[in-house]
Amino acid sequence: MAGKQMLNIVKMKRMKQDGDPISMITAYDYPSAVLAEEAGVDIILVGDSLGNVVLGYDTTIPVTLDDMVYHSRSVARGAKNTFIVTDMPFMTYHGSIDETLRGVSRIMQEGHAQAVKMEGGAEIADTVKRIVQAGVPMLGHIGLTPQSVNQIGGYRIQGKDEADAKRLLEDARALEQAGAFGIVLELVTEEVAAYISSELSIPTIGIGAGRGCDGQVLVYHDVLKYTSNYRNKRFVKTFGDIGEQIRSGISAYVQEVKTRQFPAEEHVFAAEDGVLDNLYGKGKAEIHS
């Protein structure tokens, strides 16, 4: 978007205070980032969901730090005026703080992100504090945490009972106190997500967490049905169906190649007069043309 001003964490907090919802979408490559920026999105998340969506894994767990750096750098080239948050992948922030900071440094310096995102609550608060002290903006992520899918027993809705709701609130407060500039709430009941949002001074960004969050995030490929055999999700609204357009477009191309309709006359280039005669000899040019 021409003349777009990049968002920053101070403006995001002001947006929460003013009741101005924050729009976030994932992107994993240069063309997706270009289009997202042109559409006016506030924040681009280079999520480790690229493992499921782009790399063909069943979960996000196989995604590496190298993967995240590569895709973050691609997105940064396409969205120079949009705030970019990049995920720290599985097990890259649960070891020593030195190892964690090296990974964060790669995301910021090589991946050209403006912030990192990490899954977890009170258990990672000390790590979050050290990252923020190092000068790196950090976005939290609680509720359903895909990197822990094997531990929590699958993709289950969070905050359905009192104990779980209390845990989520405690996690959110711990992240806020540690210096996180915002928190993603994933697959959290609407009532609990709204209450958590009201209790925090930092913005919440929901995905499957209802209408009370300070912003919303969806996966690029879900918004546009950019896949084959798309599986509908209750918390997702699709706004286009480019998957079908891509499939039908490629099918038409294949058909025209098979029937020799493509390339047509308007798609080819002609040599200068006499080139074939000089190349093959007079009288033989027609055989080769």
Rank of each mutant, 00 (worst) to 15 (best):
S198C: 08
I61E: 03
V257K: 03
G208Y: 05
A194H: 07
L224T: 13
C213H: 03
A209H: 09
I22E: 00
N278K: 15
Y226A: 13
K16T: 08
S148F: 06
D29S: 09
K237A: 04
A163T: 15
I287F: 08
K129N: 00
S96D: 01
H267W: 05
D29A: 10
I157H: 11
L35G: 14
V46P: 13
I250Y: 03
Y155I: 15
V268E: 06
D161H: 15
E170V: 11
T60Y: 12
I84A: 02
T145E: 04
Y57I: 12
K129P: 01
Q255K: 12
R73Y: 05
A270P: 03
L185P: 05
I205H: 04
D171K: 14
E186C: 08
D164P: 14
G47R: 13
K80H: 01
V104K: 03
E266R: 14
T227M: 13
I246F: 13
G103V: 01
G153S: 02
R231K: 13
T127P: 00
P137V: 09
S105M: 12
D67M: 12
S201R: 11
V236H: 01
T145K: 08
I43Y: 07
G179T: 14
A194I: 07
P31F: 04
G274C: 06
G240A: 15
I43D: 04
I124V: 05
Q255T: 15
Q109E: 04
Y57K: 07
I84Y: 07
S251N: 10
L45W: 06
V128A: 00
S105K: 12
P146Y: 06
A209D: 07
I97V: 10
D48A: 09
F90Q: 09
Y70K: 11
R260P: 02
D171M: 10
K11D: 13
